[in-house]
Amino acid sequence: MLNINGVTKSYGKKTALQKVTLTLSPGEIVGLFGENGAGKTTLMKCMLGYLRFRGKITLDGELISPKNIGRMSFATCEHSFFPNLNPAEHREFYRMNFTSFREKRFSGLMEFFQLPMNRALRQFSVGQQNQFEVILALCQGADYILMDEPFAGNDVFNREDFYKVLMGILEPEETLLLSTHLIEEVQSFIGRAVLLHRGTVAGDVSVEELEESGRSLMDFVKETYRYQADRVGRTLSMLTEE
């Protein structure tokens, strides 16, 4: 279980995260939503130990350290692969550094997305680079897979394919935390939605609860953010009158 307890992160005077408390259980697929600057990326970076923060993050009761960091993987829209290496060389590197690297899954996904094995990543299209970034995160052999807007730049068909593959290959104990703005696209396969707003958890709900209450994920997001549906109309009529 991944426990985030009272995590606060500030950049100078600006507070990016304010006492965020969250628990991710094995096997959950969690969507992390929020406006730009809500703190989604910062939260993930704190979880991975890239940023110093106040509070506590534990993985099965132990602080995140080199001893257990291999149980977490990360796919980011900034990309964390080596642009000069090709996929085959990445496979070697991962094999060397992550004992539970999923060889078979790697080959399967490379074949599915028809990515060339011997071409340097810098020669890939952005869409292909995104795919490869996600492939690495899925194949590292991690129990907790963090994805930070991994599909930015991919076309809709591409994303659809990926959601299907994701649903098909994730094993029951694998946990996925997916940060994205594509709320409607992911609502069919996430089990829980966490909403961040100005560095705090503004909402945390299971999709089951939403279904029971007859609301969609988008409704929930709009409610939580107190979205004013008529504000576009008001603005337009104001401008038209002018």
Partner: peptide
């Protein structure tokens, strides 16, 4: 890229 992210979580 930011391969530093990968290197820092080895």
């Amino acid at each position: 890229s930011k391969s530093i992210y990968l290197m820092r979580r080895l």
